[in-house]
Nucleic acid binder design. Structure first.
Lengths: 227, 227
DNA sequence: GTAAAAAAAGAACGTTCGATTGTTTCCTGA
DNA sequence: TCAGGAAACAATCGAACGTTCTTTTTTTAC
């Protein structure tokens, strides 16, 4: 046997990409073997090389495509939003919802940068910097206008992004709280943390109920999964 | 040749542990080979097995010892601190300083849980839960007393810990800001985010001047690492 | 001074890895 | 209809992996 019936290049390419994202997300880039990936999409490992140059470039393609998508969608979400506070809220809203629905991609882009070789890593880090700049600009603007009490915009940027991104470590779509509720909670935390005290930004109403939600990491078997 | 001159069991064990932490921190558990670790401490790879059962148990030992240290030091830092706000500040202060000085251990404990096998991972997750509980309890207490406006203590706990822990992704001891200054910035963010608005918890003065006095933690005290 | 214990070397193992190559089969457009 | 290109198989490479085992050397205890 050689080519299997019904095989299709474009479809296979997409399947490889999706399976790769899931496997890297669950096991990590180093721990994912190409044989594992191949078997996931019903191929032999050698056939994968029709679809990428090598394992490293597969990772980079995933990271780069994700970062480009993230940046462009963020720009779209903040386009036309005026004023520091609205822009801050728009960023928080976008970032949270994006990270809630793209957990795997986000996790890879954040955690597997270390697995990229130097040139690729530099590209990824620059893209991340551009994204962070969007929040930092909003904070600087607010500080200049007196709306925010932010003495170190870069530190606050890192802090806020870390807080928001952390949601992908525990969020489950079938959890008790809706996306809207979570966005409201996080928005309160962020806005309260940076808003100037005198600006009595009325905090939204209470949200309700006890707690829940396991903080378990993307748990799955460790080590390589033998096919 | 077999045994090298000046060799010493206890010293080697410590060297292996330290090198292991650094290598896992920089390359990840899966990407670190035992030959690499052995050469780092001047051994042959086979000799490592005098010091651990296997690669997996080396990782678990590192994670477990770190978590035990983290929890015991956190309990010491908060011991005798009364009231929600002081306890919250004590937690923030401790957590930040600990994470600034133990970047590698913290990174491993957070990121390599996935590389632990199921039983070991369960132990690590339970330890993390116990640690998180300390912050959650402070938030619940504050919410009950009306000092904090926290509708979902568990969500806020995850958010705050993510924000604080993120500092180990970029903090450098030789950076522009001192540990005290960073603690002050993060404390403002956290306290502002959860404090009840009406409780005009006067935000601390500008940070340009000496940072606010650290809560009470007698342990990790910053050594003015202007660094 | 000597024998036991400790520490490490060094060789080898079976396995798996990423990657390459040559071949076979399927699909498609002129 | 039938070549030519696309898609996948199958076999294989050398290197590296974690691990085990035996041997050799150093240290320690009596």
């Amino acid at each position: 046997m050689a080519r299997t019936i019904g095989s299709n290049g474009a479809r296979t390419a997409k399947a490889i990409r999706q399976a790769g994202v899931q496997l890297i997300y669950r096991h990590g880039y180093e721990a994912m073997s190409l044989r594992q990936l191949a078997s996931e999409v019903g191929l032999q490992s050698g056939s994968l090389y029709k679809y990428f140059e090598n394992k490293q470039s597969l990772l980079f393609d995933i990271v780069r495509d994700h970062m480009e998508d993230l940046i462009s969608k963020a720009e779209a979400a903040m386009d036309g939003v005026d004023g520091p506070l609205p822009r801050l809220k728009a960023f928080v809203d976008f970032h949270l919802r994006y990270h809630m629905t793209r957990k795997a991609h986000v996790f890879i882009a954040n955690m597997e940068i270390r697995s990229l070789d130097a040139p690729h890593r530099a590209v990824a880090i620059e893209m991340r910097r551009r994204y962070e700049q969007m929040l930092e600009d909003a904070l600087r603007l607010g500080a200049a206008e007196g709306a925010f009490r932010v003495s170190e915009p870069k530190v606050s940027t890192y802090a806020i992004i870390s807080m928001l991104t952390g949601i992908c470590m525990w969020y489950r779509p079938d959890g008790r709280l809706t996306q809207d509720e979570l966005v409201a909670i996080y928005t309160d935390l962020v806005v309260g943390g940076v808003a100037s005290p005198e600006r009595g930004a009325a905090k939204p109403a209470e949200l309700s109920a006890p707690a829940e939600a396991p903080p378990t990491a993307p748990s799955v078997r460790s080590r390589r999964v033998r096919a």
